[in-house]
Design a protein around this nucleic acid. Structure first.
Length: 566
RNA sequence: UGUCUCAUGGUGUAAUGGUAGCACUGCAGAUUUUGGUUCUGCCUGUCAAGGUUCGAAUCCUUGUGAGACAACCA
């Protein structure tokens, strides 16, 4: 009986508040039962994980309710925009595994928007203002104080019409005049205080070139674009909440039928130890503080890709954090858990020795080579196995040996036994140090009866070490990434320049690492779990036999636990 | 001294008037040829005060706290 209840509960996953709205609209038969969303980035930077959250929602809602989702570039400000960004945005959406119905550009609607603006002027709902930016700011008032009317507010319609036309013909310099909607300078909502809807920009547009000299502002372009396309649910982040009345106002002035798009706001993603502002990310790139937009320390989608995150792990993460109207900060641990969960199930286990020291098996024949069978992934019985060469001289992790073992250390130490993963149990007999007191070689004896697969191999020993053969392993470069920022919430540290919060140790490059020969055939973005260390992926920089790995994420606290206890 | 929005463990969320649940984190323990994985257990929560109700996280009132809005950005 309890089984039946469990099944019922599992099948009924709770809806987020947006899905509740959507289902209600559907139940009420709004828009003829049609569902249409859009993902509307401005092509002025690369997509980051915050966008991934919006993408999952926009495309996810469409998919769930048999609707469509279009990609629309909100390209109304030519000064900041570029085709480079258009291309990267499309690539990143595809990588996440989503498919848009159509690609649109707000710039496709410049003529329609211009015509709409002219119509507003003709009905005396817009006028050309000649106040400067400073003067407009001054007469706009403050949130708690009403604004004043512009002296140009009651300019004759014909005059505004004429000036608007001449503005677009390039007769006036940038900033000389603007087109403002005539609404209410005393409105408690600042956005209703005669918002600017068109300004002069002479910078060529990446798609329309120099055709236009006036460009619509966001508030004037966004809702109208939604309307032109037939969007039913226009999902955006919380900071646009105050814009919604204006969004509705313009659409009401435009619409001629029952259809109307509906704006719904959700909480933007904030992650600990991360800045998400495009402006700041652009600065990191421009000032060379990181190696480009796809630097694995960046919170960009391409950065995560290069770091070795899988699309599925990002989607699972977004699924876990949900959509609400509460502005919080998500712990990075949640993202990292999603990655480990996905990679644990799929990545091939290999041996990589990050900080090698030689281990010599004094009773093992000098020239002998045994091929040991290494399981590819114990989580996946279908994944098979590969071979790894075992010889007299091996490399093991320097941290896996202690001359005087601490209480909770159960790896290699004089007179102690450990298992060499997939091979033999060995007993440490001593070590050799150089003049500086550093350990140069460790000696051990092999217990030949304990080879993996043999009856004696079931003997229990406390520790299991990963290793590679000194003569068969290949050198590699390993890049260990830490948090880019030292502050848990760099976006909140308002007094500081955020670059002061950069973590100088955020990138460590290790070049004397040794990895098993199996990896020489690995291809860029292949991901592996280095036994007991972490998840790594092959960096696309790996060329000409040089192998470069990025650490995607460490294994859960493996190393710190040991250090704390020792 | 404005308008709008929000408030559930340390974090992110669910419960849509009917037993406050899930995930992450943390801490214990079991299993383990990865100190990984897996499994088990534990810690920790409805911002406050009133009201409505048989019954309130949920509805109402007041208070408190947080965020957004004063770009010719989106």
């Amino acid at each position: 009986m309890s089984d039946i209840r469990t099944n019922e509960e599992e099948g009924k996953k709770s809806l987020n508040f947006i899905e509740v709205f959507v289902e209600k609209d559907l139940a009420e038969g709004k828009n003829g039962g049609r569902i249409q969303t859009r993902f509307p980035p401005e092509p002025n930077g690369y997509l980051h994980i915050g966008h991934a959250k919006a993408i999952c929602l926009d495309f996810g809602i469409a998919e769930k309710y048999n609707g469509i989702c279009n990609l629309r570039f909100d390209d109304t400000n030519p000064v900041k925009e570029d085709v480079e960004y258009v291309d990267s945005i499309m690539e990143d959406i595809k990588w996440l595994g989503f498919h848009w119905n159509e690609v649109y550009y707000a710039s496709d609607y410049f003529q329609q928007l211009y015509d709409f603006a002219v119509a507003l002027i003709k009905t005396d709902k817009a006028y050309i203002d000649e106040l400067s930016a400073e003067e407009i700011a001054r007469q706009k008032g403050t949130p708690t104080q009403a604004g004043e009317n512009s002296p140009y507010r009651n300019r004759p319609v014909e005059e505004s019409l004429d000036l608007f036309r001449r503005m677009n013909e390039g007769e006036f310099e940038e900033g000389r005049m603007t087109l403002r909607a005539k609404i209410d300078m005393a409105s408690p909502n600042m956005h209703f205080r005669d918002p600017i809807i068109y300004r002069i920009i002479k910078h060529p547009h990446h798609r329309t070139g120099t055709t236009w000299k006036v460009y619509p502002m966001y508030d004037f372009a966004h809702g109208e674009s939604d309307y032109f396309e037939g969007v039913t649910h226009s999902l955006c982040t919380l900071e646009f909440e105050v814009h919604r009345p204006l969004y509705d106002y313009f659409i009401d002035s435009l619409k001629t039928d029952d259809y109307r798009p509906r704006q719904i706001e959700f909480n933007r993603l904030n992650l600990t130890y991360t800045v998400m502002s495009k402006r700041k990310l652009l600065r990191l790139v421009k000032e060379g503080l990181v190696n480009g937009w796809d630097d694995p320390r960046m919170p960009t989608i391409c950065g995560f890709r290069r770091r070795g995150y899988t699309p599925q792990s990002i989607r699972n993460f977004v699924d876990k954090i949900g959509y609400t109207k509460y502005d919080g900060v998500v712990d990075m641990a949640l993202l990292e858990h999603a990655v480990r969960e996905d990679l644990n199930a799929t990545s091939t286990r290999v041996s990589g020795v990050i900080n090698p020291v030689k281990l010599i098996l004094t009773n093992y024949p000098e020239e002998q080579v045994e091929m040991m069978e290494a399981v590819n992934n114990p989580e996946d019985p279908e994944s098979g196995s590969h071979e790894i060469a075992f010889t007299r001289e091996l490399y093991i992790e320097r941290d896996d040996f202690m001359e005087e073992a601490a209480k909770n250390f159960f790896r290699l130490a004089p007179d102690k036994e450990v298992r060499l993963k997939s091979a033999y149990i060995v007993k440490c007999t001593g070590c050799k140090k150089n003049n500086n007191g550093e350990i140069e070689e460790i000696y051990a004896e092999c217990d030949f009866a304990t080879k993996s697969g043999m009856p004696e191999s079931s003997r229990k020993v406390k520790g299991t070490l990963h290793w590679v053969s000194a003569s068969h392993s290949i050198p590699a470069e390993v890049r260990l990434y830490d948090r880019l920022f030292t502050s848990e919430n760099p976006s909140e540290e308002k007094d500081k320049d955020f670059t002061e919060l950069l973590n100088p140790d955020s990138l460590q490059v290790l070049t004397n690492c040794r990895v098993e020969a199996f990896l020489k055939d690995a291809r860029p973005y292949d991901h592996f779990q280095f036994q007991r260390i972490g998840y790594f992926n092959v960096d696309p920089d790996s060329t000409g036999g040089k192998l470069v790995f990025n650490r995607t994420v460490s294994l859960k606290d493996t190393w710190t636990k040991v250090k704390d206890k020792a």
